[in-house]
Structure formats: structure tokens, C-alpha cells
Computed example of a mutant assay.
Amino acid sequence: MINPPQNRETYDRFHYSAATRVGDMIWVSGQVGLDPATHTLGQGMEAQSRLAFENLKTVLAAAGATMADIVEIVTFHLDMHGSDIQAFVKIKDEYVPDRYPAWTAVGVTHLVNPDYLVEIRAVAVAHCGAG
């Protein structure tokens, strides 16, 4: 179980780990656009996407991996057809600029908090560099 300090409250409250590592395989639970230090939500899709990717990056680092080790992402979006998906792709490409992992984008009617716009879960293989 991988639980960076900023995820401890979530682990205690909801009884799940930020990630699970078995060998070099790492499964990362859904990450959202919430700043773990201030508990504030990013305003708009770009801000929430950036925070979600930063949270993903932090969890991967705690598991001994990097963003380059991601082999799959699954994202959950409230808006699959408007400007939100375009804003998400722009931020995604900043965090994963090449060696693109497999990606499944799912449209949903709501997430756990009605103000969340996106959630990202990932699978990584430590030290693979996705290559």
C-alpha cells in the first residue's frame, strides 16, 4: 500500500490506499483536482487537471515511479464534448509529453464531489520508462 502523508486523511476516512504496488506494477487510485495541502479545489478544468496530475505524480514518486512509467490512464469526465476535454488534453500532454500510455476516457454524470470535473486513475510499471 502506498499512502503519501497528504493522502493519510483520505486513507483513514475512506479506507483505501492512494496506490498499491506489487513487484514493479503500481495501481493508482483516482486522483482529482484538489490541492492536498489547502484542501481547495482548482477552478476550472485546466486547474483541476493540473492538480490531479500533480497528485498522480506525487503518488507515483512515493511508489518509486515517475510519470514516464505510466502504461495506462483512465479518466472520468463530466464534459466529453466541449472545451473541457480539450483543456484536459492540453494539460495531459504537458505531464505525459511522449511515449503516450494507453488511455480510456469515460463520460460520467457525476463524481464523488459535485464540483469535481475530472478524475484520473493510472497503472504504472516502475522503471519501465513506458518504453
Rank of each mutant, 00 (worst) to 15 (best):
A68W: 00
T40A: 12
K57M: 09
V96C: 13
A87I: 15
T104A: 14
Y11V: 11
V89E: 04
D84A: 11
A126H: 00
T20I: 15
A87R: 11
A130W: 01
D12L: 02
R121Y: 00
A62Q: 00
A37I: 15
A61P: 03
T109C: 11
V125N: 01
H110G: 13
P36R: 10
I2C: 10
E54G: 01
W27Y: 14
A122C: 01
H77Y: 06
Q86W: 00
S17V: 10
D35K: 03
N55G: 15
A68Y: 02
V59Q: 02
D115K: 15
V71C: 05
T40H: 14
T109D: 13
A126G: 04
C128T: 15
D12A: 07
I91L: 05
I70C: 03
E72M: 07
G129W: 04
A124H: 09
D115E: 13
Y100Q: 15
Y16T: 12
H39M: 13
L60E: 04
D115W: 06
A62W: 00
N55P: 12
A19D: 05
S17I: 07
R99F: 07
D84M: 13
P101S: 10
F53D: 07
A63M: 13
E72V: 04
V74L: 07
G64T: 13
G107H: 15
M25V: 09
C128R: 02
D79R: 08
E54M: 06
R13M: 07
V118P: 05
M67R: 00
